[in-house]
Nucleic acid binder design. Structure first.
Length: 300
RNA sequence: GGGGAGAUACCAAAGUGGCCAACUGGGGCAGACUGUAACUCUGCUGGCGCACGCCUUCGUAGGUUCGAAUCCUGCUCUCCCCA
């Protein structure tokens, strides 16, 4: 039997968790989470991690195994997951991976180029320059140092320019020269299952879930990390809005409203990302029998 | 009952004779995205062809004018103050 990675993806709130657990149980295997925020042990309620009960049913990996104070990125995820898969495939022929972080999923399925880790000092210096002199000066610098990236990058997006500059300056070689975009060969098959619902239905689920999170103590969870709000890991829907509230800028109700809206926006961005991927087989999350049947037909 | 203010596209809100299919923000829709990515960024948003263009809009019915969201009149509704 061939070894297969069954990837269950879709926007936030679509119903990945329940389905993945059912599939993993049916196949008698384990689950790898591909969610860039559920990975942080401090963020439970706001990232909708599986319940203790659910975690009991199937062994999950990459949930709560990092701290918000750690540095982490998609490349690290790629290597850690590949290592883990190497182990898991000694026991299982199929492993389920589920989550909504498109770049993390791509890193595992296709790989991403090797880039150096950026020196914090350099990063801060460039950020300072950006704040002092604006994007235009970053553009000029990039055009000089790496004309190719200048051509290719979204010049209206400061984060993307910053990234290119960081790599170029740190290594002395243009950022563009690192981007070979190889689709790395994986020693296992990949089967992508995409989940989709009617837009209204999805948005309704998101709204209900946010209310549930608040009921479950999201506000208190966020308050614990108010002091750390500058951390990137906390630049996350469900937390950043509450930080605004704690700062007295908006009411609690307004914050909750914004969490719902920003979750919808996030879901839309996820859909845009996944829509490009021609390898995805789309299903309604409640068509579980169809999905199971499809998976079984593919792994035999 | 008297006085005042106002009715603009999904919402909020500019515009007060031609440069207005109508600023701006929100929402919505579409999209980009190879590294802190639940980030960051872009476009569209009256209809039709979607480039030029054409058609129907600014409570409603009339009127003035070459020309009105913008001026005048009636009507309807909303809000505020006095009774």
């Amino acid at each position: 039997m061939q070894q297969t990675l069954i990837v269950i993806l879709g926007p936030t709130g679509i119903g990945k968790t329940d389905l993945s657990i059912d599939i993993a149980r049916e196949l008698g295997t384990e689950i790898i989470s591909s969610d860039s925020r559920q990975i942080y042990k401090e963020l439970k309620i706001g990232t909708a991690v599986p319940s203790d009960d659910q975690l009991q049913k199937v062994k999950h990996h990459f949930i709560g195994n990092k701290s918000i104070y750690d540095y982490y990125n998609a490349s690290m995820f790629e290597f850690e997951v590949l290592d883990l898969l190497n182990e898991l495939y000694k026991t299982y022929n199929q492993v389920v991976m589920t989550g909504g972080s498109g770049m993390y999923i791509n890193a595992v399925c296709d790989g991403i180029d090797e880039l150096p880790t950026i020196d914090m000092q350099l990063r801060n210096d460039l950020l300072q320059k950006y704040h002092d002199e604006g994007v235009e000066s970053l553009r000029i610098q990039l055009k000089m140092l790496d004309p190719q990236s200048y051509q290719r990058i979204d010049l209206k997006n400061p984060k993307r320019i910053l990234k290119a500059l960081e790599v170029t300056i740190q290594t002395g070689q243009p950022y563009s020269s690192f981007l070979t975009r190889p689709k790395k060969k994986r020693p296992f098959h990949i089967l992508k299952i995409g989940l989709q619902r009617e837009r209204d239905e999805l948005y309704q689920r998101i709204n209900v879930r946010v209310d549930q999170m608040v009921h479950d103590g999201l506000v208190e969870e966020a308050r614990k990390f108010f002091k750390d709000r500058h951390l990137n890991s906390l630049n996350t829907v469900g937390y950043k809005e509450l930080f605004e509230h704690f700062e007295g800028k908006i009411s609690l109700n307004k914050a909750i409203e914004l969490i719902k809206r920003n979750s919808r926006h996030y879901a839309k961005r996820q859909m845009s990302w996944f829509n490009r991927d021609q390898e995805i087989h789309w299903f309604h999350p409640e068509k579980e029998k169809n999905i199971m049947g499809f998976i079984k037909s593919k792994i035999k």
